[in-house]
């Protein structure tokens, strides 16, 4: 009886502990999601109380909107640049942090600073750095090169990806660092005795042991790619030639600038479905069950 009561009490404590998160999720996730679902079937301009039911009309229009497909194409291009760059850079940083003993915490926090920086602030800094007469081009001019970072349709999205890599570098590196620290040293020692060189050790031990980290970072990176907004919104406004138009920019534009909240909501739901499909594929193809 006592054990039963004790268990009940522990359960209750558990519920109390997760209650703030449940409230947070309910208010800031569940409610907006269902509200978004409701207005996706309506024509509504946000500020008027009138909401006209239009059935699947919004979804149909989104699927016929060339900017919907352009934004998806841009996300794929962004992903191609962002995913490998961010993984290589963050793994390198994590490996360096793993190797050093002195001031490791200082450097770890230092790399995390970019992650917690305000998007608007660093976007403006990068806009100035990469502008025609910015610091980067001033240096490049010395070797006779000027790169139109944000004004050439072929590389503008790549430039945006570079900035986002900088932002997430520290965060992803910390995930990898935790993974590296959890690999038992004995595995490397045994491999060395067996004659495996560093390269073999990396591919045969480090990479497989970091599979959960790769999986979570890939999932984050794919989700992030569909959500990229602040940087292109502030720096390029979607140009040149719509090469940096992203789904969230379109959702924002449709909802808050053109006041087509229903259309914006259906756009968001379709993007969410595609994003979910990508995440599912990534997990299925990368995640390995722990032995």
């Amino acid at each position: 009886m006592n054990i039963f009561k004790k268990n009940e009490k522990r359960k209750l404590t558990g519920y109390w502990l997760v209650l703030p998160y449940i409230i947070f999720t309910a208010v800031l996730w569940v409610y907006p999601f269902f509200w978004g679902l409701v207005i996706a079937f309506k024509k509504w301009n946000i500020i008027s109380p009138v909401k006209e039911f239009v059935g699947f009309d919004n979804f149909l229009r989104v699927s016929q909107d060339p900017l919907f497909w352009t934004s998806i194409k841009n996300v794929l291009f962004f992903m191609v640049a962002f995913v490998p760059l961010s993984i290589i850079a963050s793994l390198t940083v994590a490996w360096m942090l793993h190797r050093i003993k002195f001031l490791r915490a200082f450097f770890s926090i230092g790399y995390l600073m970019s992650y917690v920086s305000a998007g608007v602030a660093y976007s403006i800094v990068f806009m100035i750095l990469f502008s025609g007469d910015g610091l980067i081009n001033t240096w490049l001019e010395k070797i006779g090169v000027t790169i139109p970072w944000f004004s050439d349709a072929r590389i503008a999205m790549f430039s945006i990806a570079l900035i986002v890599v900088w932002k997430y570098l520290g965060y992803y590196a910390l995930i990898f660092l935790a993974g590296l620290q959890s690999i038992p040293k004995t595995m490397y020692e045994a491999a060395e005795i067996d004659g495996a060189n560093k390269w073999t050790q990396f591919w045969r031990i480090t990479v497989p042991m970091l599979n959960p980290c790769f999986t979570i970072i890939l999932v984050f990176a794919v989700m992030m790619s569909f959500n990229v907004f602040t940087e292109p919104y502030l720096i390029t406004g979607g140009g040149p030639l719509d090469s940096t138009q992203t789904p969230v920019m379109q959702i924002y534009y449709q909802t808050f600038e053109a006041l087509h909240a229903g259309y914006g909501s259906s756009f968001a739901l379709m993007i969410a479905a595609i994003s979910f499909a990508f995440v599912f594929i990534v997990r299925k193809s990368v995640e390995r069950e722990a032995a």
């Binding site: 806009m127 100035i128 502008s131 025609g132 007469d133 910015g134 081009n137 000027t146 139109p148 944000f150 004004s151 050439d152 040149p240």
Partner: peptide, 14 residues
Amino acid sequence: ASRFEYIDGFKKGK
């Protein structure tokens, strides 16, 4: 005209 965005380009004499 430049296809780059210059910050204060006119004022800096560019």
